[in-house]
Amino acid sequence: MNATPNTDNGRYADDDGALDPRTAAQMIEETAMRARRQFDPASPLAALLGAGVFLFGYGAVWLSIRDQHVYTGPAGWSVALLYGLIAVAAIVGAVVSRRASTGVGGRARRQMRAAAAATLAAGVGAWMVQGALRYLGVSFRIVYGVYGPTVPLIALAAAGAGYAAAREKWPELGLGIAVIIIAAASTFFGPRGAWGLTGVGCAVALVIYAAAVTARLRRPIPASA
């Protein structure tokens, strides 16, 4: 047989019947864990990067508005930093997701496309309402200071949580619910609360999520499972 022996897969002989049951059990565990790691689009590194976006991006905006007694909006540099970090996180997230889903077709791909469409619709809908509120004369402070950093995030998290619930992905569901609660609660504290509390709260939630995903990926899969 032609199994390439340049990885640990080469430890196993490839002749029919030459496999010891104990070795077979070990091979099942190792192969299942490797497959799970490669197919799982959740990445602790991407989650930590997301935490950085909230901590430093939202934190920068909070820093630039924290002394404003009359809300005039965030400084240009803080908005640029926020959107720069969001762009980097989006690129990393897309790369990680693409790597996990390459070659995977059928129901999983259809579900991912449907979830992406639902998430996009939720985000676009929330941003359209933001524009409508401004058009209808709602104050700059509410539209960009309170609504902007929270409601689109709630919409995106709700779409993600729904997908996670349908797939029984509990850490993702927990993250979605945590983001919704944090963002919703922070709106009671005005623009400073909306940017500051959402930033810190979501960063903490993402760090916890990264730990949960790491544990999930490292958890052994018994051969009998």
Binding site: N9, D14, A32, V104, R107
Partner: peptide, 23 residues
Amino acid sequence: IHAPARLRVMVTLAALGEHDTLS
């Protein structure tokens, strides 16, 4: 199934959901 390559093929494909395909 009880051959290393085929066992790994089966376990890898089983890691996907039902009705999922792999290139």
